[in-house]
Design a protein around this nucleic acid. Structure first.
Lengths: 232, 232
DNA sequence: TAGACTTTTCGAACATGTTCTGAAATTATC
DNA sequence: GATAATTTCAGAACATGTTCGAAAAGTCTA
């Protein structure tokens, strides 16, 4: 019928900007100036368009960051998958964790509603691996989802706390508030904490994510597959 | 020497505002209009001072929220402490969790650097309980700190995800993105997730914090007290 | 070709957290 | 009593995310 005039199949003012162009510029901006410098206005200026034009290609800044995550998520290397279901869960979770921890701006959107659901297929296969691993280990699908969610909370918390602690901590010196904290501990009311003393700072800065993850997975699987949950 | 003229021991323009006055007004504002309405400008107007004056009594907004948390933390009821160290850990952690989850604005500062260290003694005794419980169960102090940190990450993650999911979800209806997510699942590549189907939404909205916490504590204690960690 | 419709673009404006600079109101000192 | 020091107060201004309304630049229809 009207295939003649439908040259581009489009009507309206022709766009001068594309979503992919925005994402490309965003990556360039992040790589060049650091992700803290990624503001809507700077990004728009980088492309050469008005700042408010951005909102026609992207719902809001959160959406922008999310689209970036989906792009990067495609690059997550598929880890070697062990035979044991339990080990597959650990490996897949660690892969997600390491990827997200490597993108500081991921922390900005990690807790948005439906983060998992808004993830692309490329990252969802890791979720699939976790759920399937739990089922393979003997969990019901319902239990498997619970396993995933619990692990997810742990991972999100670790990444967020890490992201907010890492800001401007280059050298080995302990931050000032820590010394005040330790010095102010009341040994009579908080004996265990006071006994730790300066060691708290050392221990708190160590990376124990994987150890905790392994313990969590073991605990969750044991809980799910014990026919009669411990009475006490 | 100069004790005569030191009537109030103070020099300079007399303050018209006190920090406690600010905190009181902040609580009033939160109770009356909801915590989303708590802005620096509104709070200043509520007291009747200039907005920028606030920054003489409070470092920044994060600091303000933190001071509020310390106030509220005094009100955390001391839960009945069970005999078993393991159960004490669970009870203390759940007490912290429930308190923080009840203050939506707590989510804003939960991940700030040194959150624990900036907590008041009134909340620290719960941390003490957790660490002491782990030691009582047979952990070394170092392991006990690891136990606490792991649990803390899980708790932080749960609260944050919950806080960002709860926004404007009153009825039972599933959000739109969830339907799209489920419908878009590729059953051939994501069989477990596709098999769950609509059930994902139901399961994802259930409160499984305590169950996960129990499993985590058990897993952590088992890992710490097993002399020779499992070889595989 | 003239208007209707559609899509994109963008400037103005707003709320917010925050910094800067200077004014105001006291006490201390001579 | 004048001047200095000190502390508190507050207005102007900035960057940011974001909304609103209107202008611009096309296609479609009569």
């Amino acid at each position: 019928m009207s295939q003649l005039n439908a040259q581009h199949g489009r009507v309206g003012r022709p766009p001068v900007t594309s979503r992919t162009q925005i994402l490309t510029a965003a990556r360039r901006l992040i790589d060049r100036d650091g992700w803290e410098k990624l503001t809507i206005r700077r990004l728009a200026a980088e492309i050469g368009i008005g700042a408010t034009t951005m909102y026609h290609h992207v719902r809001d800044k959160e959406d922008l960051l999310f689209l970036l995550i989906r792009e990067y998520a495609d690059q997550i290397p598929h880890p070697q998958m062990p035979d044991e279901p339990r080990d597959r869960i650990v490996a897949a979770t660690a892969a997600i964790h390491d990827a997200l921890a490597a993108w500081p701006w991921a922390a900005e959107v990690l807790t948005t509603d439906g983060f998992i659901a808004r993830l692309g297929d490329s990252a969802l296969w890791l979720v699939e691996t976790i759920v399937a691993g739990a089922v393979d280990h003997g969990c019901t699908p319902q239990q498997a989802v619970r396993v995933f969610r619990s692990i997810w909370y742990y991972t999100v918390g670790e990444i967020l706390v890490r992201a907010h602690s890492a800001r401007g901590r280059d050298d080995d010196e302990q931050p000032a508030y820590l010394e005040a904290f330790i010095a102010g501990l009341d040994a009579s009311r908080l004996p265990s904490l006071a006994a730790l003393g300066e060691e708290w700072g050392t221990l708190a800065s160590q990376d124990t994510y994987r150890q905790g993850l392994a313990a969590f997975v073991d605990g969750l699987l044991a809980q799910a597959t014990s026919a009669a949950p411990k009475h006490r």
